Amino acid sequence: MLSCPKCHQPLKKRDAIVCPHCRTELKAHGHAGIPLYRATGKEPLCRTCLYDADDTCNYPQRPDAWECTLYRDTRLVATVSTPTSRDSKPSPQVWVRRNIVWVAIAGLLVVSFLIAASKR
C-alpha cells in the first residue's frame, strides 16, 4: 500500500493527487498513473526543468532532484512568456516569498523604532 511521503499515513486511493491526511500534494512524489522521469546524465533534472526555471516547482528535493513526475524539459517548450533564466531578476512577489523572514524582521524593527520614537 502506498503512503504519504510527509505524514506516512496510508493512501486509500492509488491515484490520489493530495494526501487526505496532511494535504501534501503528491503529484511530484510519483504514484500509479503518473510517469516518473529520471535523470540520465550527470546533472539533476531541475537544471533543465521548466518549473524550476520559472520558480513554480514545489518538489521538496528541488533543486537537486534526480527523479520527478513534474519534469518539463525547457528545451522542448516552444514559447515561454516569462523569463526562464536563473540570472533574470525575480518579480517583487517572488522576492518577498523567498525572503519572507527578512521582510518580517524588517517590519518588526520599523514598528519597534516607531514605538520608541512615540514615547519620547
Rank of each mutant, 00 (worst) to 15 (best):
K6T: 05
R75D: 15
T24K: 06
P90M: 08
K13T: 02
C4L: 07
K42Y: 06
I105E: 01
C19E: 11
I105L: 15
R38H: 10
D64R: 10
F113R: 02
P92R: 12
D73A: 10
T79Y: 04
L70I: 00
I115N: 00
Q93W: 12
C46V: 08
A117S: 14
C57W: 04
R47P: 01
T74H: 04
P44T: 07
K12D: 15
H29D: 07
D55E: 14
K13F: 05
G41N: 07
Y51I: 09
S118D: 06
R98P: 00
A39E: 12
V80C: 15
A106N: 12
V103F: 14
T24Y: 02
C4Q: 09
L70H: 10
L50V: 10
S91M: 06
H31Y: 12
A78F: 09
V18Q: 07
L26K: 08
A78E: 15
T56F: 01
A116H: 00
P60D: 11
V77E: 08
R23H: 13
A117C: 07
R38G: 02
D52V: 03
D54P: 00
C19F: 13
P60T: 08
Y59V: 09
V110W: 05
P10K: 13
V77T: 14
V94E: 13
R14V: 09
R38L: 04
G41D: 11
I17P: 00
G107A: 10
C19V: 04
K119I: 08
N58V: 08
V103E: 05
D73Y: 08
D64G: 04
G107C: 09
K6Y: 11
P92V: 04
A39P: 12
V101N: 15
R75G: 07
E67S: 13
T56C: 08
G33Y: 01
I105N: 08
G107V: 02
C57Q: 07
T69V: 06
P60K: 03
H8V: 05
S91A: 12
L109I: 03
R47Y: 05
P10F: 05
A16P: 08
I105S: 13
L114R: 02
P20G: 07
P63A: 10
P44L: 01
N58H: 14
A106K: 03
K13H: 09
I105T: 11
K6V: 12
C22I: 09
I105H: 04
N58E: 14
A16C: 08
R75P: 02
Q61W: 05
V77K: 07
P92Q: 00
H8A: 09
L11P: 08
P92D: 04
I34K: 15
A16G: 04
A116K: 00
W95G: 01
A104P: 06
F113V: 13
P83Q: 01
V80A: 03
Y37E: 10
V96G: 02
K6S: 13
V110H: 03
A117E: 12
E43L: 14
Q61K: 15
K13G: 02
H29E: 05
K27D: 11
